[in-house]
Design a protein around this nucleic acid. Sequence first.
RNA 1: GCCCUGGUAGUAUAGUCCGGCCUAGUAUAGGCGGCUGUCGCCCGCCCGACCCGGGUUCAAAUCCCGGCCAGGGCGCCA
Length: 448
Amino acid sequence: MRLNSGVIKMKTDELGDWRRTHYSTDINPQLDGKQVVVMGWVREIRDLGGIRFIILQDRKGTVQITVPQDAADQKIVAKSGLLHRQDCIAVKGAVKKMDKAPRGAEIVPDNIKILGAAKQPLPLDITGRTPAEIDVRLDFRVLDLRSDRSQAIFKVRHVVLEAVREFLSKNGFLEVNTPKIIASATEGGAALFPIVYFEREAFLAQSPQLYKEQLVIDFEKVYEIGPAYRAEKSHTRRHITEFMSIDIEQAFATAEDVMNVAEKLMYNVCKKVNEECQEELKILKHKVPEPKVPFKRLTYTQVVEELQAKGIEIHWGEDIPTPAFRTLGAIHPYFYFITEWPSNLKPFYIKPRQDNPEISEGFDLMWSWIEIASGGTRVHDKEVLLKRLKEQGLHPESFKYHLQAFDYGMPPHAGWAIGLERLVMMLTGIKNIREVVLYPRDRFRLTP
RNA sequence: GCCCUGGUAGUAUAGUCCGGCCUAGUAUAGGCGGCUGUCGCCCGCCCGACCCGGGUUCAAAUCCCGGCCAGGGCGCCA
């Protein structure tokens, strides 16, 4: 962690009775002569000697503040000369129609308040002209998040979440929240983070899987958007230890039913991002496809054959390694499902097919080489579930409360989970998952 | 857990292979001064760095060893 040694000497002003009247983007030539108050952060200062231009940034955009040295009150001239990049300021003044100004209008200040000073020199250049590495950017995340790039990423993320909630709610799914502190570490699969829970050990939930399955008994269609924790030592651009999982579970449904939900959801998400984030996608230099539904369905067997044809050493029944997925992504650059996975590659709660138990009703939703979602028809017969648990080396006693749910009328059901960050990565073209999380957690990073 | 690469001013880089002309170059940021229409303004001056420890050598940013940190990949990952 680097710290700069600059000292803030600036005495700041009180907000007092000043309130914002306009955002930067509201300032236009039609407001010529109108008194306004704008608030935000100093993006850039261009001092030409006789005239000084201050670019003020707020959450909507930027507007130019112009201080002509001869015309203006000398107190304003002096005050504007004290400003630094990223100082938080408020400006009261008159809008002036001006063809030469960025939005055809600028503000000539009558008064300026410095509300919060910024230590100089800044640890990174938020205009991105002198780029900083991801590590430095994350160390000074509050500053970094002010950049156009970060603002664009988190706007897209917001629109994705909005689209997901809107779509699932409209389709009859009830939003639920399940515990993230859990008692048992025996669900199998990914490693869990142990925590001290008073005088006992507890764990951070790696998935809401078991809870959402139980909840279909009571609510039939549920979804949850919440954090999941995985204590894997993965060190790649697509792994973090704390991520947001979008989960659904639906009663009286099979894999095919929830695949339909997933592809329609993806269609809606892409459509909404395209509609509402054109500016942001331009900043990120990225294009989002309008996906064609239904998505391609490839069976696991087909995938293995395609990979073998590409000269990759892989045999039926083996998991698909990362480099093979990259090859697959090159063949299928957009969305596709991989279905009919071997049962032994899928978790215990994924239903083996009736006609051939070697093959499961589990699926993955891929976008190019990235796994976006994973799901399937669930086992809803308690005996089969017990058998699957034992086969995978798990202890039924540890699942006492989960198994109990199967005694009270468990309906056939299916569901999936989408990794929000991976989806946002693909929608924004961002190559490092940490960039699409405000304060990412990975194997090595626990701060800020 | 394994493998690869790297660590030079606030930031980003050149120099490292092949030790000495490095008193460490450049850009940007920052400070000071000049400039009345900038929009990556411009011009001048200034400030500021070889990750830490040990070794080799007449001489180490450069070579060797150890450590720490970072980036990436693999494996792992319901």
